[in-house]
């Protein structure tokens, strides 16, 4: 078991709609790669800001004649931050975990990968995680990414 990457980033609203690459190399083949990432806070706790942002969006996107049916801003609360993780090996795109959970764990291996990623050997070479920063609203978001190389028979340590 070897820790390959352990990185903490702070994402701000100006990082919204950008991709943040995190490159790493494997010097040898592993049986599996274990990737964990988490970001927090997930929800925008400032309800005044949430209300303001939601009402602005409804005004922008919903035509006036239909807006009466969409006036309940609370129906859209809480506003949430969204960061997804996509993965490449060399120049090959392996997939993305496009889910809303703010803490996710993934396995990459030839025998099978976590949903969102195609099966692929944890092979020596150049890898790239790309954090897809869909939305950071309000306060900065802390994002932690860890990559562990697992040998045959090793299991990911849940305490990592």
């Amino acid at each position: 078991m070897k820790k390959i990457l352990n990185q903490t980033l702070v994402l701000k609203p100006e990082n919204s709609k950008t991709n943040v690459p995190l490159s790493f190399s494997l010097e040898k083949d592993y049986e599996r790669l274990f990737i964990r990432y988490r970001y927090f806070p997930k929800k925008v706790e400032d309800m005044d800001q949430a209300k303001r942002e939601i009402l602005q969006a409804l005004e922008k996107y919903v035509p006036e004649e239909s807006r009466a049916a969409y006036s309940g801003w609370r129906d859209y609360a809480p506003l949430v931050n969204l960061v997804t993780l996509s993965l490449d090996y060399e120049k090959e795109y392996l997939g993305c975990a496009h889910r809303h959970a703010p803490e996710q764990k993934h396995i990459i291996s030839a025998a099978g990968s976590s949903p969102g990623f195609v099966p692929h050997p944890a092979a020596a070479g150049n890898w790239k995680i790309v954090l897809n920063v869909h939305a950071i609203i309000g306060n900065p978001v802390t994002c932690q990414v860890e990559v562990i190389g697992l040998e045959k028979g090793e299991a990911p340590d849940d305490s990592i």
Partner: peptide, 13 residues
């Protein structure tokens, strides 16, 4: 193409 977009659903519009 006209779904409610950012920040409720980034990219949906």
């Amino acid at each position: 193409p006209f779904e409610i977009g950012s920040p409720l659903c980034t990219g949906c519009h």
